[in-house]
Design a protein around this nucleic acid. Sequence first.
RNA 1: CGGGAAAUAGCUUAAUUUGGUAGAGCACUACGUUCGGGACGUAGAGGUUGCAGGUUCAAAUCCUGUUUUCCCGACCA
Length: 478
Amino acid sequence: MSEKQVKEITSRDVDFAKWYTDVVKKADLVDYSSVKGSMIIRPYGYAIWENMQKILDKKFKETGHENLQMPMFIPESLLQVEKDHVNGFAPEVAWVTYGGNNKLEERMCVRPTSEVLFCDHFKKIINSYRDLPLLYNQWCTIVRWEKTTRPFLRSREILWQEGHTMHASEKEALDETLRMLKVYEDFQKNVLAIPVFTGQKTDKEKFAGAESTYAIEAMMYDGVALQNATSHYFGNGFAKAFDIKFLNKENKLENPYQTSWGCTTRMIGSLVMVHGDDRGLVLPPRIAPYKVIIIPIGNDEKINEVLNEIKEDLSDSLISYKVDNSNKTPGFKFAEAEVKGYPVRIEIGKRDLEEGLVTIVRRDTLEKVKVPVDEAVMKINELLINIQNDMYERALKRRDSMVYEADSYEEMNEIAKTKPGFIYTNWCGNQACEDKIKDDLGLKSRCIPFENNEPTGDKKCVCCGKEAKTKIYWAKQY
RNA sequence: CGGGAAAUAGCUUAAUUUGGUAGAGCACUACGUUCGGGACGUAGAGGUUGCAGGUUCAAAUCCUGUUUUCCCGACCA
């Protein structure tokens, strides 16, 4: 690697935090604005979000959901209807107190999430079991006044999607909660190539006002956890607080059962921190705005002819591409392509063309192959599939190598202090142990996975030594 | 929100200690030569030194406040 690259992007093993900010800025994903925690998502970063939206939105619609748009402001009295909810969010909402020069009679917060807005609406439109289920989703921004902010990982203005549904039965609502969690899990695995632990949050970590919260938890390159999506089951708590009722088949009034689920542009941060390397971003083909970057080396008739031929073949195969026609030297273009993380690079130069070849380079391994011009697109198709799979397998292998089981508190302590990653232990189910582990080791519970969650070994809680109820993951979090 | 550090051209920075004409490299613009791992020549453009006050004959430099960024902690469904 040249000295110039080392200078521009801090090595991720030297200073991971600096590496992250270098990559998100140098890959043109994001820029800072003059408001803390309110970032500018630049076209290349936004294109990744658009792809996420496109793929998820299709899934949401296939599962019967409709998009709508709710207001941005919530009157204080409305936010206060559900007690746990307001207690959870009050410390981090932004308030609007003036309209022009006039002080408002009642202040309004900028939505930190839209449960109460949906409930206010649901109350008006739900009358009968025939109105259920109601399956809604909205793409919007929300505001949470975070104290510490970082691009994509924790911002004050958050670009996200929130699904809100109402059901006639407890079971149906719970099924919906888990169904959407599964949609997120599949998306992470198959599109983002990010392995996740899927499971239930503890009572301490669950959403304010929810009966149960589920999450998908990813591990970043440095072993720190990032929650990439959540799905909540509310029971009928909000419905009761908001007096939402429907007549069931027996002609009796009943409160419906509710869910909500969401994911944000934080997933872009995940992509960077799971797959990126010292040369920059590495994007899985299925989410990359451009799957191929074409770099002509030099400029003559033959090169242009082959360039056009390949462009046509890529278009025919529905493979998105970008051409770097700038006047930069090849070395500059290669380095630039690597910072941006285009999955495949194709180099068209006269030296290869004399033998009828072009060079194809995959970003994840930097492996180069030379193929005949008319086989280039076929080869690219094959590579894109391999890159997608290999990236997932590599991420999975790395993650699994950083998950440690601890049987005693001493062992857990030792691992927490010396090895980055997740720790998997027996747990009694009491918050006292969660609090102690947070205080002693700085670790928070991530989730209780759905599978292989039976206590093992002596079946005692790793912290208090009492009988364990389950196994659970612990980690530092972003 | 506490503790620390920083802010000078798009980027990296010099001048700040000791107040006295804001300077460079890269990037950018035009033309030309180049092109297989961060090219070269010639010419050019780019700054009320984050913002607001104060001290001074004079402030990038000293003082106060403020905003933003980074680090550590607290907080964070």
